Simulated scan of single mutants.
Amino acid sequence: MRTRRGGFLKFAAVFEGSLLLLAFGFGGLAGIDPVAALRFDLEGLAYGVAGTLPLCLVFQWSYGTRLAGLREIKQVLVDKLGPFLAACGIGDLFFLGFLAGITEEVLFRGFFQPWFEANWGWLGGLVFSNLVFALVHWVSPLYALLAGLTGIYLGFALDVGGERNLLVPILIHSLYDIVAFLAVAASYRAGTAR
């Protein structure tokens, strides 16, 4: 289990770290600072924590539903990620959640959304950045659709409160991923305990 955990954490760190390299590399070429809108303030913290609740409620419903497409997604997540997440401790899962939330939001909301906005306006930025987000999260057509809709939610969250703050979608994404990782690990453990 230790080898599985260590290898998985290293792979995640390298993969997610490469997203930061992409964000800053593309940002340098396009003249966009992907963390320009990152502000650490209480308002952003509050919006980020509160904004996690709707996604977690949707996740809880979808994770427990009997709808065939959603059950298939759950099974794929448990089968593919479950062994790795179950080998991790709670601190590891928090690390992974924040790692994914920070790196993916810096790339998709910090670089791609402003880059597409520069050419196609706010709505174009929201739509096109989340088409890319959906494609990168392709597990199945339904999963990609759900990821794209989640990305749109995160894109709206970037501008909540009237002033753009990357902290809000980072927190929502990170906290949501932690909840999802905990659920997938628990499902895998429950399945292997039978």
Rank of each mutant, 00 (worst) to 15 (best):
A46S: 11
F8C: 00
Q60K: 12
V132Y: 11
L57I: 09
F112S: 10
E163R: 15
S129W: 04
L20V: 12
F59S: 09
V139K: 07
S174W: 09
C88T: 03
A144M: 03
L167C: 02
L42T: 15
H137W: 02
L99S: 08
L81V: 00
L126T: 11
V184F: 04
F108G: 05
D159R: 14
F8K: 00
D159Y: 11
Y143H: 14
L107T: 05
K74M: 06
G69F: 01
M1L: 08
A68Y: 13
L135E: 03
Q60V: 07
A37S: 15
F8W: 13
N165L: 06
L146A: 09
L77Q: 07
F24T: 05
L135I: 02
R164A: 15
N119M: 12
A46N: 00
V136K: 05
Y47K: 10
Y47C: 00
T192Y: 04
V127I: 15
A37G: 03
I170Y: 10
E117K: 03
Y176G: 09
F95V: 08
V14D: 02
L21A: 15
R5P: 12
L182V: 10
E16F: 15
C56E: 07
I152D: 01
L96Y: 08
L55F: 11
F112G: 07
F116W: 13
E72S: 09
L53P: 07
L167V: 03
V76M: 08
F181N: 08
L70W: 14
V106L: 02
A87S: 15
L38N: 11
E43D: 12
I102V: 15
Y188L: 00
P83H: 05
F95R: 04
L29N: 00
G7W: 08
A12K: 12
L45P: 00
G89V: 06
R5S: 09
L123D: 07
L145G: 07
K10Q: 02
D33M: 03
V132D: 09
